[in-house]
């Protein structure tokens, strides 16, 4: 009696197992063309077109000759590709009396950007380190004042700085502009570095102190090697900001040492002669190239830096 009963129980068990085997199994299938995907990709495509279209027009126009531009088809690809406008923009375009193109402005901008970036990052990183790790008296007040500085519009300070630079004998020199850029980068960079150093484990700092490292020892031997990502971020910010600066460049320098942006403006806005749209476009692209390159090159480094920093000791 008991045996058949147990047999039928096994059979019933097998029946129960069968649907379990044929039911859903493995990863849940995803629909490619779901409503969410259409909305997300649709929005992304529309927005990228919106941003890329002007760039397309610029590139295309810069590769056309003037006769072709006069036809007025700004979206049409060039019938005959010419690099003449690029050459002209770099080495022949006239600004005022000089006719050596943007090349002069390019080297001026390099001479302004490199020292400004190095100086501002060097000072701001030490500032941020001191504020994060060495809680000196008045640190909070100092920090608040510094952050407050980030919210004052530059235009308010233009003229007082002109007077300051004049009194120091730096008005109209590269050095003066470098100092101005370094100081104006201070609030945001200090904030950036302070927050990064605060996020590093405090015990590392304590361990280094027990190990007898001093202010500079800890900064150079412990903090710096761990901070590549934030230095790259600061560099991207500063290079882009200083290279693209127009206001300080036009106010605090003189024509001989105008940065590239000011020179670009002078080329594009020159009122005499024919408006050479292709040269203007090429000049603009040339000016924008440096931040773009920095972004692409260090963007990779940035991601690598973050990945390396993620493995904490």
């Amino acid at each position: 009696m008991s045996e058949p009963a147990s047999l039928s129980a096994t059979a019933a068990g097998a029946d129960a197992v069968a649907p379990a085997l044929s039911g859903p199994r493995g990863p849940r299938p995803r629909k490619r063309l779901s409503r969410a995907n259409i909305i997300v990709y649709g929005t992304l495509i529309v927005v990228s077109l919106y941003y890329l279209l002007p760039l397309y027009v610029m590139v295309v126009t810069s590769l056309k000759g003037m006769p072709e531009i006069r036809l007025g088809n700004i979206f049409a690809p060039p019938m005959e590709i010419t690099f003449e406008p690029w050459v002209k923009a770099w080495s022949e375009a006239c600004t005022g009396l000089n006719c050596d193109g943007l090349s002069r402005g390019f080297w001026n901008s390099v001479r302004i950007t490199v020292p400004s970036v190095v100086l501002s990052i060097a000072i701001a990183s030490v500032n941020g380190y001191a504020l994060a790790n060495w809680r000196f008296k008045g640190a909070d007040v100092f920090f608040t004042i510094l952050i407050f500085g980030a919210f004052i519009p530059y235009q308010v300070m233009l003229y007082p700085i002109v007077i300051l630079l004049r009194e120091m004998g730096l008005y109209g020199t590269l050095g003066g502009l470098v100092i101005v850029h370094s100081i104006f980068g201070m609030p945001i960079l200090t904030l950036l570095f302070r927050n990064y150093f605060t996020s590093l484990p405090e015990e590392l700092f304590k361990a280094a102190r027990v190990d007898g490292a001093g202010f500079w020892g800890i900064y150079f031997r412990i903090m710096l090697p761990m901070s590549l990502p934030i230095f790259v971020v600061a560099m991207i910010l500063q290079v882009t900001g200083i290279w693209n600066d127009f206001l300080f460049g036009v106010v605090y320098t003189k024509p001989d040492i105008y940065p590239m942006t000011v020179q670009l403006n002078n080329i594009v806005n020159s009122v005499q002669g024919v408006k050479e749209y292709n040269v203007n476009m090429a000049a603009t692209l040339l000016t924008g190239l440096v931040p773009l390159v920095i972004y692409f090159v260090s963007g990779k480094l940035f991601v690598r830096g973050i990945a390396a920093g993620a493995v904490k000791g």
């Binding site: 484990p201 015990e203 590392l204 304590k206 361990a207 280094a208 102190r209 027990v210 190990d211 007898g212 490292a213 031997r221 412990i222 090697p225 761990m226 493995v311 904490k312 000791g313």
Partner: peptide
């Protein structure tokens, strides 16, 4: 006295090894 001049060694919860 500074920590390094107190004649102490310290071991931390998070190890605090210098990662680089």
């Amino acid at each position: 006295e500074e920590p390094s001049r107190r004649g102490i060694g310290m071991v931390f919860q998070s190890y605090a090894l210098y990662p680089q």
